[in-house]
């Protein structure tokens, strides 16, 4: 069975005619080709598909899109604004926080949600916030350092604005 969905993704409204049982992850990737959001298990275990719904990180593989119609969905594609990378993105690149890069979109979106509620988190708070997303490359330390760097840069940007 199919249905017409109206989804607000990265500030844009998308109408999608798709199967009712498809997960948000499948609709994002397969119907809208927003392939920046990844998958490692599709069972809610690895965290690689994390996106933000009204600013909260959720696992897109466990959400039916019909549940989030009308809410703000943010994916990695919406993190850079007008071609300018978010400080988290530049920090990830500079710190070597992406090795294979496959968990990076989920780590970044989760870190963005954290920094919006806690602008100066200590490293344990960052670890806790990111602990639902697995990374097999980095040992996590460069990811934590990148989030700390971005938090610092965002603080400076706030002061200057």
């Amino acid at each position: 069975m199919k249905q017409l969905l109206t989804l607000k993704i990265n500030g844009e409204t998308h109408e999608v005619w798709t199967s009712t049982h498809k997960t948000l992850l499948e609709v994002l990737r397969e119907d809208l080709y927003l392939t920046g959001t990844k998958h490692g298990c599709e069972l809610g275990e690895c965290g690689a598909c994390s996106v933000l719904i009204d600013g909260e990180p959720v696992l897109a593989c466990l959400i039916l899109p019909v549940e989030v119609q009308g809410q703000e969905i943010q994916t990695i594609e919406g993190l850079a604004k007008n071609g300018v990378p978010h400080p988290l993105q530049t920090a990830f690149a500079e710190q070597g926080a992406s090795q294979c890069g496959y968990c990076s979109p989920a780590m970044l979106m989760t870190a963005k949600a954290l920094l919006e509620i806690n602008s100066n988190p200590d490293s344990n708070t960052i670890r806790e916030a990111l602990s639902g997303t697995l990374c097999r490359c980095t040992g996590y330390s460069k990811i934590i350092e990148a989030v700390e760097q971005a938090a610092g840069e965002l603080a400076v940007m706030r002061q200057n604005s």
Binding site: R29, E30, Y33, T35, G36, T37, K38, H39, T75, I76, E77, L79, A80, P85, L88, Q89, T90, F92, A93, E94, G96, A97, S98, C100, G101, Y102, S104, P105, L108
Partner: peptide, 21 residues
């Protein structure tokens, strides 16, 4: 120095095999 593909990965632009349609 930053990895040559670091920013593309952080922007979700890197195309992995399953991202191909």
């Amino acid at each position: 120095w930053a990895q040559v593909d670091g920013l593309a990965k952080a922007k979700g632009e890197t195309v992995y095999a399953d991202d191909m349609f």
